[in-house]
Computed example of a mutant assay.
Amino acid sequence: MTDTYNPILSKEDIKRWALLQKRPTPEPGIALVFSGEGQPLIALIQGQMGITRGEMVWGKYNLLYKVDLTEHPLSFQFKLPCATDAFDFQAELKFICSVQEPEKIISRGITDVRLFLEPIMAEIMRNISRNYQVEESADAERDISLKVKRAIYDEGFQVYRFVLTLSLEQEIRDRIREKKRIEDTTEIETNKIKSQKKIEQEAQSLDMQRQLFEMERIKMQEQFEIERIKLKMEFYTPLLQAGNWQMLALQLAQNPQDVVFISQEINKQKQIDRENQMRMLKMLLDEDAIEGSQVSEVGKRVLQGLITMTEEYTRALGSGDSNNTESQKPILETEEPKNNTSDSVRPEFNWDED
Results as ranks from 00 to 15, higher is better:
Phe116His: 15
Ser137Cys: 04
Phe87Ser: 11
Lys180Val: 06
Lys180Phe: 03
Asp139Pro: 04
Phe89Val: 02
Asp184Asn: 13
Leu168Asp: 06
Lys147Ala: 08
Ser98Val: 07
Asp174Asn: 06
Gln100Ala: 11
Asp154Ala: 13
Glu135Asn: 09
Glu136Ser: 06
Gln158Lys: 06
Ala83Lys: 09
Tyr132Arg: 02
Thr165Arg: 01
Thr111Leu: 10
Met121Val: 14
Val163Ser: 06
Lys180Thr: 10
Phe162Ser: 04
Pro81Asp: 11
Phe95Val: 01
Lys180Pro: 01
Glu92Tyr: 06
Tyr153Val: 10
Thr165Pro: 01
Leu164Ile: 02
Ile182Gly: 07
Val99Lys: 06
Gly109Asp: 11
Val113Ile: 13
Phe157Arg: 00
Arg161His: 07
Ile120Phe: 07
Ser98Ala: 10
Ser137Tyr: 09
Val163Glu: 08
Val134Leu: 04
Leu146Tyr: 05
Leu146Cys: 00
Asp88Ser: 10
Cys82Met: 09
Gln133Phe: 10
Thr84Glu: 12
Arg173His: 07
Pro102Tyr: 06
Ile120Met: 10
Thr185Phe: 15
Arg142His: 11
Cys97Leu: 05
Phe95Met: 10
Asp154Phe: 08
Asp88His: 13
Arg108Asp: 14
Tyr153Thr: 14
Ser129Lys: 03
Leu93Glu: 00
Pro102Gln: 09
Val148Trp: 01
Met121His: 08
Glu103Tyr: 01
Val148Glu: 00
Glu123Thr: 14
Tyr160Phe: 10
Arg142Ala: 04
Arg142Glu: 11
Ile172Ser: 06
Gln133Ser: 07
Asp143Lys: 08
Glu169Ile: 14
Ser129Phe: 02
Phe157Trp: 03
Thr165Met: 03
Ile106Pro: 06
Cys97Ile: 03
Thr185His: 14
Glu169Gln: 15
Arg181Phe: 12
Gln133Val: 03
Arg181Met: 13
